[in-house]
Design a protein around this nucleic acid. Structure first.
Lengths: 114, 114
DNA sequence: CGCCCATAGCTAGTTTCACTACCTATGGCC
DNA sequence: GGCCATAGGTAGTGAAACTAGCTATGGGCG
């Protein structure tokens, strides 16, 4: 569902980095991996994927290089060392975040109402 | 830590609704409940909390009413029926989302690299 | 008394970021 | 030729959380 909407906000970068952790991919392959790996839940438009990859590249977390396959230009990205560090940190951060939100969503843990 | 940053993006509303599920609270109490309930992880500025509550009220998910305590004006919010429905739906959605992200972050699940 | 802090509410303006909606191009299929 | 899948891209929009301020009360402290 395209409705995956903006809930990804702030968490897209980790997912992209994680996609590349298994080995270099070109942008379109990243998009497909994300879609298949999530059972169709994260079927993001290219207008989301490409700008995000550009951001990550500019931040030095991934590195892209052009290649040509059958007259098709491809930009293949790989994780940099900084990207690996970031991925590691972000994984931990996600676990903390998810644990906190999940705990808060369970009915009852709130301090007294008044 | 203020570093809770923008990772909340898109998930703040559920947390606010969940805070009110335990009973009516005024805005500042919501902020405090969120902070304490998360072990300090979600210590959000009032400039985040109040506009969010206004949004939720405008959306009909919560209802606010003024009262005065010791010359202090307080706006107390409670969940509406629509708000309860939304909270229920959003809880399910969060679980799905969190499961998907967590699965993707584990090394290995990706389809073949090439 | 003057000052700051905690409580309680609010707003204006900025920034970030995913989105919609487009565009270019190749190769295969009908 | 027309269309789809693959592969890359940009411009502009909009939502939402942020920064940085504001008003106000009451209590504690020097």
């Amino acid at each position: 569902m395209a409705g995956s909407g903006q809930e990804l906000k702030g968490h897209l970068d980790v997912l992209l980095l994680a996609t590349l952790a298994a080995g270099p991919r070109h942008g379109y392959a990243v998009k497909e991996a994300l879609r298949e790996g999530s059972g169709g839940r994260f079927d993001l438009p290219t207008g989301t994927i490409y700008p995000a990859l550009h951001r990550l590249e500019e931040a030095g977390l991934i590195a892209g290089s052009w290649s040509a396959v059958d007259g098709r230009r491809r930009r293949t990205y790989r994780l940099t060392v900084a990207g690996e560090r970031r991925l590691h940190a972000d994984r931990g951060n996600w676990r903390e975040f998810a644990t906190a939100v999940t705990a808060l969503l369970e009915p009852g843990p709130w301090p007294a109402t008044s």
